[in-house]
Simulated scan of single mutants.
Amino acid sequence: MQQAMPPEPNETAESVQTKMQDRMQAVLTRAPTAMGFVREGRFALVSDPLNHLFGHGDEEGGGELVGREIRSVLVSDAAHAGLLERTAAAFAAGRPFDEEIECVRSDRFRFWGRLQISPLDWNEPAGETFWIVDDVTVARQARLAPTWTAKHDALTELANRREFERRLSTHVGSRRLEPVSVLWVDVDKFGEVIRAMGTEVGDHFLYGLGQLLITKVRASDLVSRLEEDRFAVLLPNCDLHYAQIVAEKMRSAVAGYRLRWGLHRTRVKACIGVVQLQETLETVDAVMGAAELACAEAKAAGGDSVRVFVSSGGYEELAG
């Protein structure tokens, strides 16, 4: 890692600070994310996307949003007071603030934003903070729709077990010739994370893990949270060979995944069972059972591994 260049011999502390601020503003100007810094309750530096998100101009230096109180982007005094209170509580617990809150633009248009706030220095949580804001209005509306909630897991936003089994049922017993495979993913020793760090950190970890699994599959595939720390993946038009490749990529990705959530740091590993649909697996329960049994074999072998269901009572080791 390259070290920062030392200041010039004749540079004053003030000039060094000005240069650092100019560099930070240059980074924010080019950043595609709506983010910024808040100092003493006011926006100190902001990226262009954050400026635009709240309906302000393109003037150099952040435009009209810089210098404004954070109260100006919230819908009421009560919302402002509640945000300060919950942020302080989150920092005291050693974690960033991460919630969906109702925000307001300069034209008084309201939207829902996912607001993530972290202190720049965890030793001084009351000092300057770093904000990231995402407009989640459309996603929130989708989640609140009855049809969405019936098919998705509220925590991870993945398909739920009922939807997974419904989609799988369209392939079981089908006369179509395309191969279909299923993965059963079980996180190793996840209970230890819960006991050590609490359910809130565990929930954040599961959400991140679900998003990680999605990156390892195609758009036509389906990733589902079955229950607790167990996931399943439906791979249409995917034979056992390619399903093994996907499973190994997932196993490796989980092993390399690091949760950094405020002051919390943790990592886990996972076992994966792989099965390709076959005539002997005549029902959804039979397919799911075969994948789960293969995963159990991986756990019995010590964890962090993949097992493939070959035939009734047979398993094949892939990785570990």
Rank of each mutant, 00 (worst) to 15 (best):
F109A: 15
R23N: 12
T87M: 13
F111W: 05
E128T: 15
F130C: 14
A232Q: 04
V187M: 13
Q2S: 13
R114A: 11
Q21S: 09
R162V: 07
T33D: 15
V201A: 15
R166H: 06
S47V: 06
E282M: 14
D134G: 08
R176V: 12
V217Q: 03
E11C: 05
A90G: 07
L259I: 08
K189N: 14
L234R: 01
V284N: 00
A44T: 04
V310W: 00
L45D: 02
E128V: 12
E40A: 12
G36I: 09
S174L: 13
K269M: 15
T129S: 11
V75F: 01
V275Q: 00
A300F: 01
V233E: 02
W148E: 13
E64N: 06
P6T: 07
E282F: 08
L168P: 05
E297C: 11
E69F: 10
R140S: 13
A291W: 08
G302P: 08
D135N: 09
G314E: 13
T156K: 06
G61C: 07
A145Q: 10
S305P: 03
P179V: 12
C295W: 04
P9G: 04
M250A: 11
V287K: 01
Y257F: 15
E200Q: 02
P7N: 02
N123V: 10
H56C: 08
G289T: 08
G113L: 10
G57K: 05
A298C: 13
A154K: 04
P6G: 07
M250Y: 05
D221N: 13
P9H: 02
L158D: 03
V287F: 05
N51F: 01
W112I: 15
V185C: 14
W131D: 13
A79S: 12
Y257V: 14
K151T: 11
M288K: 00
L263H: 00
D153T: 04
E85R: 12
D229H: 08
R265G: 10
A89I: 02
A294N: 05
A196K: 08
P9A: 07
A13K: 12
A31D: 10
R68T: 15
E165C: 13
G36M: 06
F54K: 09
L277K: 04
R143P: 07
Q21V: 12
E317Q: 04
V38F: 01
